[in-house]
């Protein structure tokens, strides 16, 4: 059974429907990418899973339990971590305080988990007391991922983690995502950098105008003539 399963999902903002009949699944430990042109609704898929949009129909289940219509603070307890694209750290809080906020729903800050995150992102330990707002874009992105990993989620959703990063940092970011996935956390990734994302992932979805158009392994999508021409720039 899939870890995350969205079927015939309709969702949007206010009265405006963005997602139309979206089907999407992520298995435990799987690495899934959503690619597609701007405005296709890629980010909206993630926001909808996390209860941040208006739910209009269909279903989302996580670990077999329906989660559509639930509020974000309930969904975070089910085992989904979410890193939004922009403004994903608390700028006036220090690095360590940002990580503590990631574990807010626990009674105590899990020290071993903190160690685990410092092990994967050593820069966060070095800059422990620095204010998040004064760090570089790449460092803030790592902090945002660290924060989302504090609760040991079964699924980590990343919305364009490479956006705004210097080209030499993009590869590094992808390597880190690989490592999180190798540790057993399922990853759902939305990426502008479609070719690289498809090269790395297990499976990919191509989202167009609020509906999913193609679904296949990343390799197959990269090899597909139609997909290449229409969405990957040849």
């Amino acid at each position: 059974m899939a870890l995350l399963e969205a079927s015939s999902l309709d969702a949007g903002y206010g009265d405006l429907q963005i997602l139309d009949d979206v089907d999407l699944g992520v298995d435990a430990g799987e690495y899934v990418t959503i690619v597609g042109p701007n405005g296709a609704g890629k980010s909206t898929v993630m926001k909808s899973i996390f209860g941040l949009t208006a739910y209009m129909g269909g279903s989302i289940t996580f670990d077999g339990e329906p989660i559509h219509g639930k509020r974000p603070e309930e969904i975070i307890r089910t085992g989904i971590g979410y890193v939004p694209q922009n403004d994903n750290v608390f700028p006036s809080l220090s690095v360590i305080e940002n990580l503590e906020m990631g574990a807010y729903i626990l009674d105590e800050v899990p020290e071993d988990r903190l160690e685990w995150i410092f092990d994967r992102f050593p820069i966060l330990e070095e800059r422990k007391s620095q204010k998040a707002g004064t760090m570089s874009g790449g460092q803030q992105q790592m902090l945002a991922m660290g924060r989302a990993l504090m609760l040991e989620p079964d699924l980590l959703m990343l919305d364009e983690p490479s956006a705004g990063l210097a080209p030499d940092l993009v590869d590094d970011m992808f390597d880190r995502i690989d490592r999180i996935n190798d540790d057993g956390t399922a990853v759902l990734l939305v990426e502008q950098n479609a070719k690289e994302a498809l090269r790395r992932c297990d499976r990919g979805y191509v989202l167009v105008q609020g509906g999913n158009r193609y679904m296949d392994t990343g390799e197959a999508l990269l090899g597909d003539e139609q997909v290449r021409q229409d969405f990957l720039g040849g």
Binding site: F50, L52, R77, V89, F90, L93, Y104
Partner: peptide, 17 residues
């Protein structure tokens, strides 16, 4: 800390739980 977090970014506070 959660008060400072919320004054920084209410939406992020919400998705942090």
């Amino acid at each position: 800390k959660s008060m400072r977090a919320m004054s920084d970014n209410k939406d992020l506070a919400l998705i942090t739980g």
